[in-house]
Simulated scan of single mutants.
Amino acid sequence: MLHQLYPSVPHHYSYELNKDMQFAAAHYVPAEEAGKCRNMHGHTYFANITIAGDTLDSAGFLVNFSILKRLIHDRFDHSVLNSDTVSFSDKRPDRFPTTEVVARTICEIVQDYLDRTENRPRCLQVYLRETPTSYCLYRPKAVISND
């Protein structure tokens, strides 16, 4: 894979991990304003997930790369995103499978997993490229820790 530079997230953590992956998926955007995107069509999405933290787990990982692949690639690859009614909705615009919502959803899925780990790292950013000329960057609002 070619080296790619992504916008960086300033943070105070000791470790930063980035995972690149691709997945092919179809979708449609059920809104009149979506134009041609109202029709079912597909993309080869390219995602980069940025995770950071101060503590490694018992295996010496911030998070195991294979877990990230299982969480995202294995869930979305060769799927119709609209069929994943846990993540997306044809009735709520904030859950239509647009690039923005897919990026946010990836972050939510990853963070949900990370919140259940002993070392509790943070998903700081999801970069999601839908086409060679279009991408979205999602960064969740900072969470204040009581640690």
Rank of each mutant, 00 (worst) to 15 (best):
M1W: 07
M1A: 11
L2T: 13
L2I: 14
H3Q: 13
L5Q: 13
Y6T: 02
H11W: 01
H11V: 13
H11I: 07
H12F: 12
Y13G: 13
Y13Q: 10
S14N: 15
Y15S: 05
N18E: 12
K19P: 09
K19H: 15
D20Q: 15
D20M: 09
A25N: 00
H27I: 01
Y28F: 12
V29M: 02
P30D: 06
E33S: 15
A34L: 08
K36G: 06
K36R: 11
M40R: 15
H41T: 05
H41A: 06
G42H: 01
G42N: 04
G42R: 09
T44M: 08
T44K: 05
Y45H: 07
Y45T: 03
N48K: 15
I49L: 01
G53F: 04
G53T: 00
T55K: 06
L56T: 03
D57T: 03
A59K: 14
G60V: 03
F61E: 08
F61A: 06
F61Y: 10
F61C: 01
L62M: 06
L62G: 10
N64F: 03
F65E: 00
F65M: 04
I67H: 08
I67K: 14
L68R: 00
L68T: 13
K69A: 02
R70V: 07
R70P: 11
L71F: 06
F76S: 04
H78C: 04
H78K: 07
S79V: 01
S79H: 09
L81D: 05
L81N: 09
S83W: 05
S83H: 15
V86L: 11
S89M: 02
D90L: 01
P93R: 04
P93K: 01
D94E: 12
P97F: 02
T99C: 11
E100N: 02
E100V: 02
V101C: 05
V102F: 10
V102Y: 09
A103T: 00
R104S: 01
T105G: 08
T105L: 04
C107K: 03
E108W: 14
I109D: 05
I109K: 07
V110P: 14
V110R: 10
Q111L: 02
Q111F: 13
Y113K: 01
L114P: 12
L114C: 05
L114H: 07
D115R: 07
D115S: 09
R116E: 12
R120P: 11
P121Y: 12
P121V: 00
R122W: 13
R122Q: 15
C123P: 14
C123M: 14
L124Q: 09
L124I: 09
V126R: 07
V126F: 03
E130Y: 11
E130V: 06
T131P: 11
P132Y: 03
T133K: 11
S134D: 14
S134M: 05
Y135T: 07
C136Q: 12
L137G: 04
Y138L: 02
Y138F: 14
R139I: 00
P140F: 09
K141W: 02
K141V: 10
A142Q: 11
A142N: 13
S145G: 11
S145L: 12
